[in-house]
């Protein structure tokens, strides 16, 4: 490969790695960003089933990835998450070690020394100024560097613009509906006009809907991932989920309006731009139509002229793909 490069999307729910394997071939790898402690006795059974785990000898074993979520659901436990609300979880003391192992296994060795790896970082949340992204970025830079790569941080929502808005010369409004937070970027010709995040996402929907119906967040998450139609909810739980989905979309649109108001005087918009929605939370049934309906109610007062609203071709991998495009471009420079 003449121009290697890797894109690494570090999300609250999934870590996705994208790598070019041929001229127009992309290989994506994903690991669920979760882990679970088990007693040492479980080792034999896990070996037989081929489950991913880290052996800590007398300290027990740690199951990582999808298996951690599955086992947690079976035994009614709560899987541990290295990231919380989009950033490194402060209360998880094992988070750094687990993240390091996951990323090392996802990236593999670099194809050449110092291969460029663009990794995603969220923008600072506007509704929670106590959250610190500097430490978060520093940790991932260290992990990627220790894996033998040259780490470059890339904004999560801007990566969506790079992945999905090439035909508009990288102009658009990218919204990444993640699990921990929603990241928003407004770009004109590849120049960041506005980037910010809100500290609400899929987890906020699960928590709110669970509270409203007397259920649990993990049950709501599972319901969501099984796929349900946002435009035609069939149960109380689905109705609650749809309500919180609507509230989240409105919250993002309102924040875009208020944040744009602060920069509109020094930012000219030559023509309407598209909105591209992406992220795991946007995988719910009819999300795009639901978003469009919600947006139409706010269009008159929306400060940016919008040409169309579309969904990323692959919402789970769009950020990693956008980062890969940046890494390839960086390698060719």
């Amino acid at each position: 490969m003449s121009n290697p490069g890797v894109g690494l999307d570090i999300g609250t729910m999934n870590i996705v790695c994208a790598r070019r394997t041929g001229k127009d071939k992309v290989e994506t790898s994903r690991v669920r960003d979760a882990f679970l402690d088990l007693e040492p006795e479980a080792k034999k059974r896990l070996k037989l089933s081929g489950t991913n785990f880290i052996d800590r000898k007398e300290d027990g074993i740690i199951v990582v990835g999808d298996a951690a979520m599955e086992i947690a659901n079976v035994f009614g436990k709560e899987a541990r998450r290295p990231l919380s609300a989009g950033l490194i979880s402060a209360g998880e003391h094992d988070a750094l070690e687990i993240l390091g192992i996951m990323i090392k296994n996802l990236l593999g060795p670099p194809s050449e020394p110092g291969e460029v790896c663009y990794y995603s970082v969220p923008a600072a949340p506007v509704d929670d100024p106590t959250r610190d992204i500097i430490y978060h970025q520093g940790v991932f830079d260290r992990i990627v560097t220790e894996c033998g790569y040259t780490g470059i941080a890339g904004n999560e929502a801007m990566a969506i613009i790079y992945a999905e808005c090439a035909k508009e010369m990288f102009s658009g409004l990218g919204i990444s509906f993640g699990s921990g937070m929603c990241n928003i970027a407004l770009s004109i010709n590849g120049i960041e006009g506005l980037t910010f995040s809100v500290a609400r996402g899929g987890d906020w929907i699960d928590g709110g809907a669970a509270k409203a119906t007397g259920s649990t967040s993990s049950r709501m998450c599972s319901k969501k991932e099984q796929g349900f139609d946002l435009l035609a909810p069939t149960s109380r739980e689905e109705e609650a989920l749809a309500l919180y989905y609507k509230a989240l979309i409105e919250y993002c649109l309102d924040n875009i309006s208020s944040q744009f108001a602060a920069i509109k005087d020094r930012f000219s918009m030559p023509k309407p731009i598209p909105i591209v929605v992406s992220g795991g939370t946007s995988k719910a049934g009819n999300f795009l139509e639901f978003f469009q309906q919600t947006f139409e109610k706010k269009r008159k007062r929306f400060p940016v002229q919008i040409s169309e609203i579309r969904q990323a071709s692959d919402p789970l991998n769009a950020v990693a793909r956008g980062l890969l495009i940046q890494a390839i471009q960086e390698g060719e420079d």
């Binding site: 394997t21 071939k25 290989e27 994506t28 790898s29 690991v31 991913n52 990835g65 996951m102």
Partner: peptide, 8 residues
């Protein structure tokens, strides 16, 4: 860790 990959 065993990481599943898919090519497209």
């Amino acid at each position: 860790l065993k990481i599943a990959s898919e090519s497209s």
